[in-house]
Write a protein that binds this DNA or RNA. Structure first.
Length: 1024
RNA sequence: GGGCGGAUAGCUCAGUUGGUAGAGCGCUUCGUUUACACCGAAGAUGCCGGGGGUUCGAGUCCCUCUCCGCCCACCA
């Protein structure tokens, strides 16, 4: 069969992939040598939100290269594929889809909605899988995993036990005291109406304003306000009946619990402990709040006085916690000012009592709605405007002189002080809306404790992070880690395995009473008002049965699970009225942060919590290949969970991977980050269609420099598409010359210098490729192979071999064998990078016992220094001849003899041995010995020989002179440098011997070269 | 406010213990030599961001400055 002129990637890629799958080529352990070491990569599971972008193509190409490389080397190899349920992101996709037909999530029951998301999951998963296959990813698809497999509601075909693993981990951590529930200030996303973790918040600088308002002192009191400059000179002294406050968020003033000043701020010392009035809301019952001291306010900033709104600001929260300042929740889950039907509360008396040390429970405080009627239901930013207007109209805004004031005009002399200011504002990374700090009950992981082992593992090298600069980032984050908020108010995800029931008061004699003591509760715990603030008893259990039996035991009565908290409250009401005879309980409606389950990926995919054979074989995994953007989200969490749950035979924690290779980002044409939500993603399939998967893969590999972002350009991909064609044609050439695949053992026999040379070159290329891959220097490996295949094999070996392949040449058989072998080596070495074309060629040439996907990776070495020297000399001579011909504008068709004026013994032998190919490639069919260079001959640069081309009449003398002068200039410059260097005593004394020797050699060569050039110039002068 | 990365040929970028500045693309000239025009041959192009230092020797190490990019961070 004859090969086509070009490789038709589009036609054969699918066939080849299907053949690999049919052969089970990617199965765990396929092609493993007996007793082989394991090599395992866990795919970073793509989100089931849609399709893959080029970043995924990059990431998976690198994984596939390593996987195929190890598989060919006989390792017990597993590349574990799968996808991530990506809670918030996937739910968002489905909700967006519903919105197109004017429907919302709440038009469905939770169950029905989740079923819709499963449909999305299946669609997306199929799509992703197809894309990975198009790329040539050699995953073991029979083991495909999903972070929510086996969860309730999973359709047929989505079985698995990942859900079990997640619940087990949650319950275990809970029992170990590493998961806790608490009312804390969390990042609240008003769009999705859920809490999110710190990591899911993007802080961006935006244009904002800072308003300055007067908080009047209670009862019209006054004090002397004195300002001094740095030298202590009084710059302002006035009588004030207010304290000035600066804020960027006036709408939160309604929830202020205090005004704080620095303890050493002399300006306010006289009013500390007094009360001031929040200047907003109905005048008749405005709230009074205390002026307190706290180290937090910076006296140099603003007025030095800070309003403390514990429920809506992270800084204020810590101050409020510290100072026992009440925190008043002002907004609902959508970011609207609370409108819950409760009357506006006159809190001034309460505030006074609190200032005097009388405490209220959080639950009670949370029930207070401090939003005045006219602001209720308004979106937070609308409320802000109203508050500003109201304060300003009352004259309680701090004012400054109007710079535009004109006594003749209408402009007022004083205007409110509003500073335009850049402020850092938090945004949801998915929703892109402004995050609202909110006080809510959430579940947290005690990340600090989990981080200890994760840190230690990297510190002591059990897990290596490459490139190393990322280690620092990892350390910094883990060392200052905060509790991880893991509950999400979503429907898509692993539901928190905790069940709540009414709180029992008289339980002191109950055998399980110790489990009650940790609960916070209201003063009237029998009435759990719908605040989700506690007041419940709860049980954390892997199954509902366990939870039910626990509550049954507590109550000594039948227990029924209500579908939601809302339903529970209805039933509880009926219970109190004696209408039902069972105790209602309900399951926590929140789901877990998607990263909580992703964190279990390295062992959850291997069957944990069951003790599977795969777990024993492949954990800890070998390498994780991932982007730096998820070091915190994912890598750190896997390290935490892995070291927490996986142990070796001695009980020591086992890390999830030996090496983490952090690759850079693939950016779009503008160098911008690609993101699913921004929609600027490139479709790798389009690139595959246009250039073939091999070209795309090779491009990505060749650009995979550690730690540096890459910008993908199609011209580069086209270049590697050409490389695919080049390889294809080299193989075609071999086939046409009767060089089939190498079937023998070991290396082919080679006596010809040329053949020994290319075998040595191949060995070096192999070693360089191995070294590159072993060091994760994909670019070095790829570029080295490119240079070898194109620059060595195609440019030189094939050309030089042509004479030897001529019919009847004594070395024909040997050369055919070596050529066949060399092509095979190229295919094998390139296979991890370009699996399709290499498999296609492999299948066409020679009798194969197995596919290249399982071909043996070479390990030979076979250097031949004298062959290298000889071929190097010949190549140099040919290049010199071509160069001279081109520069002298000799017609390509002109056949010229090569004149040998003088040549050493070795050089003479080389000229003899390679006369045919020098003649062919240099277009110098005859070699003639001659005593002296004739007139008009151009001297060639050839070490150890004086050779020239008789170009009399063909030569443009001026051009030749220019050429010689230019060359001489270069050589002279080098000579000068070398002479100076070798004349330097300290250089000779301090530089290593080999460096000195090398310089001497270079000097000798340069001197020879210079004298040859001078001689040629002299001859030229005679001619002229 | 901390931390990290980058500045090398027109463009995109390599350059791993300091020892003759490289690749791809682009550009110029030439080419129907039977593997390949997705090709071949030849060629041009660099104060390796500025300044200082260490060294026999610095693109490479140290200090400093300038300009980009990114990450983290609670200044109202």
């Amino acid at each position: 069969m004859t090969m086509d002129k070009t490789f038709d990637a589009g036609r054969v890629e699918r066939e080849i992939y299907a053949a690999w799958e049919a052969a089970g080529a990617f199965a765990a352990g396929a092609n493993a040598r007996p007793g082989a070491e394991a090599f395992c990569i866990m795919i970073p599971p793509p989100n089931v939100t849609g399709s893959l972008h080029v970043g995924h193509a990059f990431n998976n190409t690198l994984q596939d290269i390593l996987t195929r490389w190890h598989r060919m080397r006989g390792f017990d190899t597993l590349w574990q594929p799968g996808t991530d349920h990506a809670g918030i992101a996937t739910q968002m996709v489905v909700e967006r889809e519903l919105a197109k037909t004017n429907r919302r999530r709440t038009n469905f029951s939770r169950e029905d909605f989740v079923a819709l998301v499963w449909e999305q999951k299946v669609r997306s998963r199929d799509n992703i899988k197809n894309q990975l296959k198009r790329l040539g990813a050699s995953c073991d698809w029979s083991r495909e995993a999903f972070t929510m497999s086996g969860a309730p509601g999973a359709p047929a075909g989505e079985e698995g036990n990942f859900h079990d693993a997640v619940l087990k981990v949650f319950v275990e951590l809970y029992n170990r005291g590493l998961i806790f529930r608490g009312k804390r200030l969390v990042n609240w996303d008003p769009h999705f109406e859920t809490a999110i973790s710190d990591l899911e918040v993007e802080n961006r600088e935006v244009d904002g304003f800072m308003w300055h308002f007067k908080y009047p002192l209670a009862g019209g009191q006054t004090y002397e306000y004195v300002e001094k400059d740095a030298e202590g000179v009084v710059t302002l002294r006035e009588e004030r009946d207010y304290i000035s406050i600066a804020t960027t968020r006036p709408e939160t003033m309604l929830g202020d619990g205090a005004v704080a000043v620095h303890p050493e701020d002399a300006r306010y010392a006289s009013i500390v402990g007094k009360l001031c009035e929040i200047p907003v809301g109905p005048k008749e019952h405005r709230r009074l709040i205390p002026i307190i001291t706290d180290p937090y306010p910076d006296p140099e900033f603003g007025s030095g006085a800070v309003k403390i709104t514990g429920a809506h600001d992270a800084n204020d929260y810590t101050v409020a916690k510290r100072g026992n300042i009440p925190m008043y929740r002002l907004m609902d889950t959508k970011g609207h000012m609370r409108d819950d039907g409760k009357p506006y509360v006159d809190c001034s008396q309460r505030a006074r009592k609190i200032a005097e040390g009388d405490d209220y429970t959080e639950a009670e405080v949370d029930l207070l709605n401090l939003v005045p009627d006219d602001l209720r239901g308004l979106y937070r930013f609308e409320a802000r405007k109203r508050v500003i207007d109201q304060i300003t109209s009352e004259g309680l805004a701090v004012t400054i002189l109007n710079p535009d004031y004109d006594p003749e005009g209408d402009a007022p002399d004083m205007i409110p002080l509003v500073e335009a200011k850049k402020i850092m504002q938090p945004f949801g990374d998915r929703s892109k809306v402004v995050i609202e700090p909110m006080l809510t009950d959430q579940w947290f992981v005690d990340a600090e404790k989990l981080a200890r082992e994760a840190l230690a593992a990297v510190e002591d090298g059990r897990t290596k992070i490459l490139p190393e600069q990322h280690k620092k980032v990892y350390f910094n984050w883990l060392r200052e880690i905060e509790p991880w908020c893991i509950s999400r108010q979503l429907w898509w995800g692993h539901q928190v395995p905790v069940w709540y029931g009414p709180h029992m008061i008289n339980h002191a004699d109950h055998p399980l009473c110790d489990r009650f003591s940790i609960h916070q509760h209201t003063k009237n715990p029998q009435v759990p008002e719908s605040t989700k603030t506690g007041g419940y008893d709860w049980e954390c259990a892997v199954t509902e049965e366990e939870a039910v039996s626990w509550f049954t035991q507590i109550w000594g009565a039948p227990v029924q699970v209500a579908p939601s908290e809302e339903a529970f409250l209805v039933e509880f009401n009926r219970l109190q009225k004696g209408e039902i005879d069972y105790v209602p309980i309900f399951r926590d409606e929140a789901v877990l942060d998607t990263w909580f389950s992703s964190a279990l990926w390295p062992f959850g995919t291997l069957g944990w919590p069951e003790e599977t054979e795969e777990l024993a074989r492949y954990y800890p995994t070998s390498v994780l290949i991932t982007g730096f953007d998820i070091i915190f989200f994912w890598v750190a969490r896997m390290m935490m969970m892995g070291t927490q749950f996986m142990t070796d035979a001695d009980g020591a924690p086992q890390v999830p991977f030996h090496t983490v290779y952090v690759h850079a980002l693939v950016r779009d044409a503008k160098g911008q980050k690609m993101s699913k939500s921004l929609g600027n993603v490139l479709d790798p399939l389009e690139l595959v269609d246009a250039f073939g998967a091999d070209a795309l893969r090779f491009t990505l590999a060749s650009m995979a420099v550690m730690g540096r972002d890459l910008k993908l350009s199609t011209s580069r991909i086209a270049g590697y598409r050409n490389f695919v064609t080049k390889l294809w044609n080299a193989a075609r050439f071999a086939e046409m010359n009767g060089a089939r695949g190498w079937t023998g053992d070991g290396l082919p026999e080679a006596h010809e210098t040329l053949n020994r040379w290319i075998i040595g070159e191949t060995a070096r290329a192999r070693a360089a490729c191995d070294a590159g891959l072993a060091a994760f220097r994909f670019n070095d490996a790829a570029n080295g192979l490119y240079a070898f295949v194109w620059g060595r094999v195609c440019d030189w070996y094939l050309e030089l071999a042509k004479p030897l392949l001529a019919e009847g040449h004594p070395a024909r058989a040997e050369t055919q064998a070596v050529l066949g072998w060399v092509i095979d080596q190229c295919l094998i070495l390139l296979h991890p990078f370009m699996p399709f074309v290499t498999e296609a060629i492999w299948g066409q040439s020679g009798a194969r016992t197995k596919m290249i996907v399982h071909a043996d990776w070479p390990e030979f070495d076979a250097q031949s220094p004298e062959a290298d020297a000889e071929i190097g000399w010949v190549v140099g001579l040919i290049e010199e001849i071509r160069s001279v011909r081109a520069e002298m504008s000799v017609a390509p068709s002109a056949q010229i003899p090569l004149l040998i004026v003088q040549a050493g013994e070795e050089e003479t032998a080389r000229l003899d041995r390679h006369a045919a190919l020098i003649g062919r490639l240099g277009r110098v069919p005859q070699m003639t010995r001659i005593a002296a260079a004739p007139k008009g001959a151009v001297t060639l640069t050839a070490p150890g020989a004086t050779l020239c081309l008789p170009l009399e009449g063909l030569v443009d003398i001026a051009a030749e002179e220019a050429r010689l002068v230019k060359s001489l200039g270069k050589v002279d410059k080098e000579l000068k440098g070398l002479t100076a260097k070798l004349g330097n005593a300290t250089f000779l004394a301090k530089a290593p011997e080999d460096v000195v020797a090398e310089n001497r050699e270079r000097l000798a060569e340069a001197e020879g070269e210079a004298s040859r050039l001078r001689g040629a110039l002299a001859r030229l002068a005679e001619m002229g």
